[in-house]
Computed example of a mutant assay.
Amino acid sequence: MIRYRAYAKVNIFLKITGMRGEYHTLSSRFMRVQNLFDTLWFEPKSTPEFEIRGNFDCEVHSNTIYKAYKHLQASTHSDKLALFMETHAVCVDKQIPSFAGLGGGSSDAATFLRMCNEELELGRSVEELADIGARVGADVPFFVYGYESANVSGIGEIVERYIEPLIDFEVVTPDIQISTPAIYRYYREHLYAPISAKDAEKLENTPSMEILRTMTPKVANDLYPSALGCYSELSEKKGWFFSGSGSSFFRIKENIHG
Rank of each mutant, 00 (worst) to 15 (best):
Y7F: 14
I12V: 15
K15G: 09
K15Q: 13
G21I: 10
V33K: 02
Q34L: 09
F37R: 02
D38Y: 00
T39Y: 05
E43W: 11
P44R: 13
K45H: 04
F56L: 14
F56T: 06
S62N: 13
I65Y: 01
K67S: 08
K67P: 00
S75V: 09
S75P: 00
L81I: 06
L81W: 06
L81N: 06
A82W: 10
M85I: 11
E86Q: 12
T87L: 05
H88N: 10
V90H: 00
I96P: 02
S107V: 02
M115D: 03
E119F: 05
A134E: 04
A134M: 10
A138N: 01
P141S: 06
F143Y: 11
Y147H: 15
A150I: 11
S153W: 04
I155G: 04
G156L: 01
I158C: 11
V172I: 15
T173W: 03
T173R: 04
S179N: 07
Y187L: 13
A193G: 11
S196Q: 00
A197R: 14
D199L: 14
A200F: 05
M209S: 13
E210N: 12
L212T: 05
P225G: 08
S226Q: 07
L228W: 04
K237P: 07
K238F: 07
S248F: 06
N255H: 10
G258C: 08
